[in-house]
Each structure stands twice: as C-alpha cells, then as structure tokens.
Design a protein around this nucleic acid. Structure first.
Lengths: 236, 236
DNA sequence: ACCTGAACACCGTTCAAGT
DNA sequence: ACCTGAACACCGTTCAAGT
C-alpha cells in the first residue's frame, strides 16, 4: 500500500525529477503543500539543493504548469484532425474535453495556470493545434483570433470558477447559512434552486459549480456561435 | 500632491476602515502589498491591532472582496430593468458592462475574487439581480441556472485570463522570445498574428488578452446563444 | 559539480502585557 | 475595550562552506 517514495530511489536530482515530484505532491496534498522545503523533503534532500536545478519558486511553478500542459498535449496528440467545415466543431469539442480530462486529474491545475504570466512552449503548441482545427473548418484568422480569446482557458478544458466550496466543507455550510438568512431578499434564487438539482459528484466535477454538464453547456453555446459566425463569413 | 494618509486622520480603527484601507492599498500597490503588517502601517497602527477587527487574513480578504462587489451593486442599482423578451438582452449586457467598469478600476479584483471560496451577501444579491433579468426575459429557471454557470465570472464583468503579461514587462519579452524561437513549428499562429492587431490600451484592458472588445465578443455569443435557447423553450 | 547548514528578511499569528 | 511588544512557526532565499 505504501508508495515507493522518491527518497527511496536515491537517484541524483534533475529538473525533471523536481518538477514531476512537485506534480505528485500537488496531486496528493494540494498546491499549498508545494513549498521548497516540503518538496525537498519528499525528494530526500535539503531545500537549498533545489536551487541548483530551478532558479526560484516561480520557475518551479512554471515547470509544474508546463508538465501539466505537456500531459494535455500528449492526451490530444492522437485525436482525429478536422477535415472541413462539417466536422471541425466535433473535433474541437473532443479535443477540449480530452484536455479537460487531464485537468480533472490535477484539480489544482486551474489555480496554478491562472497565475502563470508567460505563455510557455507547451501552451503555444496546444493553441496552435486549436488554431489548426479552426482553419481546417474554414474559419478566418480574424474570427479564430476572437475565438481563442472567447474560449480563454476553456480551450484548455477548464474554467476557474468563483465560489466553489468543497461539498461538505465549512465554506459550503457558510454559504448555505448566509443564503438561508437572506432567503426573503432572494426569492428568485430560492425558487430557482428548488427547481434545479446540483450534481455534486466529486469524480467528474472540478468544484461545486463546474461540473461536466455545465462545462459542456457553455462550450456548446460558444462553438455553435462561432460556427454560425464562420458560416456567415464572406470567404472560407 | 501628498495624500492625506489614514495615519494623519487618527480616528479609531473599525472593520470598515480596515477594509477600505486595504482596497486603497491594493489599488496603489497591488494585492501582494496587502499584508497585515503593511496594512497596519498604512493605518498608523501595529499589525496586531488589526486582529481586533478581523479574525484573520482570510476574513480580511473576504471583506475586501465584499467591498468590491458592493461597489458593483451600487453601480448597477440605478440601471433600467428588463420588461420582457424584447429587451432583456440589452439590459443584461448593460449591467454586465457596468460591473466590468468597476472591475477595471480594481485590476487586482479578479485574482482576489477567484480565490474566495464562499459566496457572500453582495455576490448573492448581484446574482439575484441577474436572475431577475433572465426571468423578465421569459427564460425558465432551468435555462437561467445553466446560463449563470455558463457566464460564470463574466456575469460580474471579468474573465480571469491566462498568460497576460503586462505590456513592456519582461514576461512579455519572454513570450515574444519563445514565440520567435518556435516560429517554424507554429506557422498558423505566426500567420494569425500577422493579420490581427492587438490593442494594448492599458486604460480599457485588464491585461494583454482581455480587452473590452474581446470581452464583449464572447459576451454577445453567450447572450445570443441563450436568447436562442430561451426562444426555443416550450413556455416562458 | 552537487549538496548542505546556518542565517536573513519576510510572512501570519499567539500570547501576555500594557492603557 | 482597544492597542502593543516580543515571540513562534512558518516561508523563500543568500551565502559560505563542505564533498
């Protein structure tokens, strides 16, 4: 039942080992657990040794983010390519949902990716693939550019949701309490929530309000809208 | 030219003064400058005095977020209300763009709001107002619920953009360099960027990739799509 | 070349003490 | 009731020193 720790392997440190140990640490204990000291301990080494392989914490986080996006690129690399205006939307949809399936395995990734300020090699490659699909679909560079902005992080399979308390957490209890106290002032929200059901399956959801269904709902509105705009363009 | 500092006023501390001083500090020096010690100094007080008014740093940040959303609620409070299926989309659009104008005054707010885990009083009130517009437009609770998810933070006037280096920053230089080095592998991105122009006006943009035009482009696709779905619903 | 130990400058926070 | 000073347990990081 016990995992083979990095410490037990005793191989020399390297950038790759540092980054992938950080990913594992984040998977197990969250992003906050990724401290220089904590990561070093997991690697059976002193915190200061890490600085021999990464210039600082920011560079470490850049590397971790890059590893996640490379995992996405690997996951989408064998997916079918678009052949024309008929199938680009389905191909795009499949690619984005494949990216999302990687993100779901690393629930801390959205928060990390949002804090990255520079576009890395892997992110550029991913977006080039997205652009390829738009172009195969006969969509102009101008519209594709707008589309990349409109999709934003959704192109990569996630939306950073506001206010998503973990089910059963004290935050969720706090929201429920606040909501109950204000029910009289919020009649429409009360009525809406009595009509709809939240699916809180932690296996498929990134959070309270970011489940697969809602992600696909918004994605389809955007893809449908883009398809419509593409069809209305003067030339392919 | 020198501002009247909080220190000079010498009034006793209060929750409200603490929160609004934190907003001012974030406006001037960014969110990272809002430390217990830094905020205390600005208030002419010791760091530990703050704990008499807020339970901890998280509660401080909650209060700061709440103040921003209250500013949004004030900004939209006198806007016209929707009267039916004919005008709900315009009313919604105006409200969301008014919210955005508040966010633009506090460029650190998106990053802060994304980290809040519980839905506050002001956020509930804001979303109730949004729901009011959907309902006036004859949209069902079920569709409105999907719509709130689909809009996400965009309902409040922002999208947390990934990879938005500040114009002229070293991050932007890094992206440019990376991009140049990979140009051969990214022919479509090269061609796209040669055709489109980025408007980097720092007055209207929240970042490199989140300018007013792109925000409205995506917003209109979503509102148009929701309108279409609403019109197709069996009953209002 | 690679790793370490001690130290520094910051955090948020606790606690006992001041008025 | 409100504020303070010293201290604690953490950070990221520097630097001189070890092998």
């Amino acid at each position: 039942m016990e995992m083979v720790t990095e410490k037990a392997t005793r191989m020399p440190l390297s950038r790759d080992r540092v980054f992938s140990a950080a990913v594992d640490l984040a998977d197990e204990s969250g992003l906050d657990a990724v401290t220089m000291r904590g990561l070093a301990e997991r690697l059976g080494v002193e915190a200061m040794s890490l600085y021999h392989h990464v210039t600082n914490k920011e560079a470490l986080l850049d590397g971790v983010a890059e590893l996640v996006v490379e995992e996405i690129n690997a996951a989408v690399s064998h997916l079918p390519v678009a052949t024309g205006p008929e199938d680009w939307k389905l191909v795009m949809r499949a690619r984005i949902l494949a990216a999302r399936s990687v993100i779901v395995r690393h629930k801390w990734a959205p928060a990390l990716l949002e804090t990255r300020t520079s576009m890395s090699r892997a992110v550029l490659i991913y977006h080039h693939g997205i652009l390829e699909i738009f172009r195969a679909g006969g969509i102009s560079y101008d519209l594709a550019h707008h589309a990349l902005h409109a999709l934003g992080s959704r192109a990569m399979g996630f939306t950073q949701e506001m206010f998503d308390p973990a089910p059963g957490s004290e935050e969720e209890a706090a929201v429920t309490a606040e909501f109950a106290a204000m029910a009289a002032e919020l009649p429409l929200l009360v009525e809406m929530l009595s009509e709809v059901v939240h699916d809180d399956d932690p296996e498929t959801n990134l959070g309270w309000c970011d489940d697969q269904t809602e992600f696909e709902f918004a994605l389809d509105i955007l893809l449908d809208g883009l398809e419509r705009l593409g069809a209305a363009e003067p030339s392919g």
